[in-house]
Structure formats: structure tokens, C-alpha cells
Design a protein around this nucleic acid. Structure first.
Length: 471
RNA sequence: CGGGCUGUGGCGCAGCUUGGUUAGCGCGCUUGACUGGGGGUCAAGAGGUCGGGAGUUCAAAUCUCCCCAGCCCGACCA
């Protein structure tokens, strides 16, 4: 019985391969409107876990969840000049409501700085109200020219955080705290995706920001994906929305605000970073199904043994599921679970029951090992922990191997053809250099210090730019 | 908006260059039997305005013209 090749994640086929994983692993379909997306239950399970883990970290940073409207008066957007300019080409605008043309068009939020700014202005009166730390899980619409499922959909699901602070230093520290303690921690330790952290070049900031911090990850084809951003908005939005406070000297002061976001794009990043030619590989800490107990045939006590093993795993806190669909051939079921990336599979058949064991299969390596029935729970827990670490180690090794040091624009272009280039910032600073890199679709992904930490601004000495092609 | 490409059963494709009986293949689907430790096997079936329109011809999936839709690359971007 020959095994058919399932997927081939080679560079030139990468978009196709990505789409195949999405389809075959039952993650998402394209929506009815171009650029929209339907997330299937399995894909949503992954997203829910991402949301839960991210939400924990955001709350640990002190922010609280709130809810704001989908509709924004067009006039709000126009209050911050750079913000409108940046977003107006991609707005969806509602011109009619209740069967009548509206006096003022309403935009569907592309992001919520403006509405939230409006309410922060009402809520903040005194220095005692600061910092005001808000987060919102919602969906936003940006009419992008080239949508791509999970990575850049017209409508997308994300969290956006918005905070107001008394001083520039507080705001900057908080934007950085979110980048490190929420985003980088989650992406590195849960998604097992290693990151380059840094600031964006000034010409590539969020519309209306005075500084943009970013997490950049490398996908298996060597291209970059921006996994999350955190912005210092200075006093731009505070001025536009009158977010002021009375300080302890009785003086009116303008607040300093931040905003930060991460989206369902992370699901795309997960696929493109950890996927292999058998489908998705989900890191155990993320997986909503960490192990599946696959009953091969319901004979000679195998069905009962499989159910019992599953119960033991669940009781021990493992997110485990029983697959007793014995009417479906074994090969089909094992392949399906592999496509979906379930980290550990336990095969239980009559032969195993006779020998008092189960066969444990690791998704990352495909390695199979017999495990005594008495030892299943402990072994699964150990393997899950190992697998989490080895996915991160593998992704980190790939990224490092494909990140080359460069000293000139030519060297950057050469390195970026297959991965990233790390080059002194002075070599690629400025828009002229950016234009030259752009001829080969290469961009500065982020700017960091020599030791990889995040600089305060691009004027510091001894900075390096991470350059690459991106999604 | 530029540059390329593709439209053929539910899905993926071949056939088109060089027009020729009844348009094929894989997957999926239906029924039955056998199976079952890696997308099983065998048998029997269902399923098609060949994107649309016009033209050339004895004859068009195939050639010509027009239209429509979608995809990819670039510009925009979480």
C-alpha cells in the first residue's frame, strides 16, 4: 500500500502548499466576498487557544477588555491627518442606512484609535485616571489590494490595545512591555516561533505613530511575516481627541498614547513556520488537541483500552481526544490527524492490548515508540514538553542559518533572495536605499541593536537592520 | 491600474499545437463484498450547456473575434 505524497513545501510551490495545508487540515475557506475568510471549527480551535494565551498575557500587563463599535463616523478619521492619509485608500464606507443616504458617511473600522480616542478623552480627567489600559478583541476591515487567506484578509479578527499615559516615558515603556511580555513571550514560548524584535524605519511607521515596534518572524520559504506591532502614538491622537488630564500641580496636560495589535495572521504564521510535507505541526502548548488516541480496531479490548487511555490523559490535564471511528481506514485517520498537526498520536489495536502497550507517534519527527499502558500519561507529558522545545529549536536553527551578515546593499539583496540580511543600519537608512531594495521586493523589516535588543529610536549608534522579502 | 496565465462532472487536471465517430483520467460520491498496524482491494454505478456569445467549416473543447469570471506577479498592507 504505497503512501501518496501529500504536500510539498518547496519554495516555488509555497503559496500553493500553504493553501493545501489550509484546505486539507480543515482550517479555513475563502469567504463569499473577495478577501474574506471562513474559519472552520478546527482552525478556530487553534485561534481560540491563541486568543486565550494572548489574553492572559495582555491582562498580566494590566490591560482590561472593553468593547467599541464597528462603525466610526468618517469625521473621526479625518481628525488625525496622517491617520486618514494612511487608511483612506483601504476604507470600506457605508453611505446608506435604513434605506436612505446618510448625511455623513460611516466607515467600518480599519482600527479603532479614533473611536477609542474619543472615549478616552471623556474618561480621562485626572492624573489619577492614568494609565488607562484598554484592549479590544474585534474584527476590522481594510480593503487591501491583494488579500491572502489568514495573512491579509479584507476583514480580520484581532486584538487591538489602546492605552493613555501621563508621560512619554511611561507610554514608551508600556509599548515595549507589550511587545516583550505579551507578543514576544507568546510567540516564542507558545507558538514556538523565534522573532526578530525591533523598530520600524520612520517611513514605515503606523499612520499617526511616532514609533512602531515590531516582531518579525521567518517563514519556511525564507520570507518575513510581521506577527505583531506596538506603536507609540505620541500626543497625536491625544491632541486630535482631546485626551487631557489635570496633573498633580493642577495643570492641564496632553496624554501620551499607545496602540498595539496581533491578529489571525498568527495562524498563517504558524502554518508557514512549522508546516512540513505532511501538513501542519502544532506546538503542544498551543494545540487544542494535544494528543489523539486512535483505536485501530475495536476488537479484543482495544476499544476499551483506547477509551481508558484517553480518559487518563484528560484526567491528567492533557487536551486529548479519542478517535474511535473504526469504520474509516486506519491510514486515512492517521493521515488526517497529521495534516491537522496534532503533536502526539497514540495507536491502540488488539496487538498492543495483547502486549500491554500503546504505540506513541510524534508528529514532528514521525518517530514511533511502544509505551507500556501503565506509563502512557507520564510519557505523553514528557514528549509534549520535548516537542515544544524541539519545534522552537528547529525554527530558530533554520532562521539563523538563513540570516546572513551583510555590509552593502548588494550583499543585502543577495542574502534576502533566500532569507534575511543583517546589515548596519547606516547602509540601508533612508528612503533612497529603501527604493533600491524595493526593486527586488526587499524591505527593512526592523532595526535593532547589535545585541538584538530594541532601540529607542533609529538615531542610536551601532544599529542593525534586518532585511528580507515579506508577506 | 500595469504584466502573465487559466476557465472542461463536486474537486484537481489531460485533450487544443496538426478540427474528425460515443470528450478522457485521478480524487471524491453511491451500492455490495472482502478488508483493516500508513490516504485499502475488487466489482457495479451516478454525475458534462467543454465560462458565455458570434463566426469559419461537411464537422469546433480544438481555429478566429468579442465578452465574462477567476488566479498569479507588482503597487497598498496586521
Amino acid at each position: 500500500m504505497a503512501k501518496a505524497p501529500v504536500l510539498t513545501p518547496q519554495a516555488e510551490d509555497f503559496p500553493r502548499w500553504y493553501q493545501d495545508v489550509l484546505n486539507k487540515a480543515e482550517l479555513a475557506d475563502n469567504g463569499p466576498v473577495r478577501g474574506t475568510m471562513v474559519i472552520r471549527p478546527y482552525g478556530y480551535g487553534l485561534w481560540e487557544r491563541m486568543q486565550a494565551e494572548m489574553d492572559l498575557r495582555i491582562k498580566a500587563c494590566g490591560a482590561e477588555n472593553a468593547y467599541f463599535p464597528l462603525f466610526i463616523p468618517e469625521s473621526y478619521l479625518t481628525r488625525e491627518a496622517e491617520h486618514v492619509e494612511g487608511f483612506s485608500p483601504e476604507l470600506a464606507v457605508v453611505t446608506h442606512g435604513g434605506g436612505k443616504e446618510l448625511e455623513e458617511p460611516i466607515v467600518v473600522r480599519p482600527t479603532s484609535e479614533t473611536v477609542i480616542g474619543e472615549f478616552m478623552g471623556k474618561w480621562v480627567q485626572s492624573y489619577r485616571d492614568l494609565p488607562l489600559l484598554l484592549n479590544s478583541w474585534n474584527n476590522v476591515v481594510r480593503w487591501e489590494l491583494r488579500p491572502r487567506i489568514f495573512l491579509r484578509t479584507t476583514e480580520f479578527l484581532w486584538q487591538e490595545g489602546h492605552t493613555a499615559h501621563a508621560t512619554r516615558e511611561d507610554a514608551a515603556a508600556y509599548a515595549s512591555r507589550i511587545l516583550h511580555e505579551a507578543y514576544a513571550d507568546f510567540m516564542t514560548n507558545v507558538l514556538a516561533i523565534p522573532l526578530y524584535l525591533g523598530i520600524k524605519p520612520s517611513y514605515d511607521r503606523f499612520a499617526g505613530a511616532i514609533n512602531t515596534l515590531a516582531c518579525e518572524a521567518m517563514m519556511r520559504d525564507g520570507k518575513a511575516l510581521q506577527m505583531g506591532t506596538s506603536h507609540e502614538l505620541g500626543q497625536n491622537f491625544a491632541r486630535a481627541f482631546d485626551i487631557q488630564y489635570l496633573d498633580d500641580q493642577g495643570q492641564q496636560q496632553l496624554c501620551w498614547t499607545t496602540s498595539w495589535g496581533s491578529s489571525t495572521r498568527m495562524v498563517g504564521g504558524l502554518i508557514m513556520c512549522h508546516g512540513d510535507d505532511r501538513g501542519l505541526r502544532v506546538p503542544p502548548r498551543l494545540a487544542h488537541i494535544q494528543s489523539v488516541v486512535l483505536c485501530i480496531r475495536d476488537e479484543e479490548g482495544a476499544g476499551e483500552a483506547a477509551a481508558r487511555i484517553n480518559e487518563e490523559l484528560v484526567a491528567a490535564g492533557v487536551r486529548s481526544r479519542l478517535d474511535a471511528q473504526v469504520a474509516t481506514p486506519f491510514g486515512r485517520r492517521s493521515t488526517d490527524w497529521e495534516l491537522k498537526g496534532v503533536p502526539v498520536r497514540l495507536e491502540v489495536g488488539p496487538r498492543d492490548v495483547a502486549e500491554g502497550q500503546a504505540v506513541l507517534v510524534r508528529r514532528d519527527t514521525g518517530e514511533k515508540q511502544p509505551v507500556p499502558l501503565t506509563d502512557v500519561v507520564a510519557t505523553v507529558q514528557r514528549v509534549l514538553a520535548e516537542l515544544q522545545d524541539s519545534l522552537l529549536a528547529e525554527a530558530t536553527a533554520m532562521r539563523d542559518e538563513r540570516t546572513a551578515d551583510a555590509t552593502s546593499i548588494d550583499e543585502v539583496l543577495e542574502a534576502a533572495a533566500t532569507g534575511f540580511a543583517r546589515v548596519p543600519w547606516s547602509v540601508v537608512a533612508g528612503e533612497d536605499a529603501a527604493a533600491e531594495l524595493g526593486t527586488k521586493a526587499v524591505t527593512v523589516r526592523c532595526i535593532q541593536r547589535a545585541d538584538g535588543t530594541v532601540p529607542a529610536d533609529e538615531g542610536e549608534d551601532d544599529l542593525y537592520a534586518i532585511c528580507g522579502r515579506s508577506y
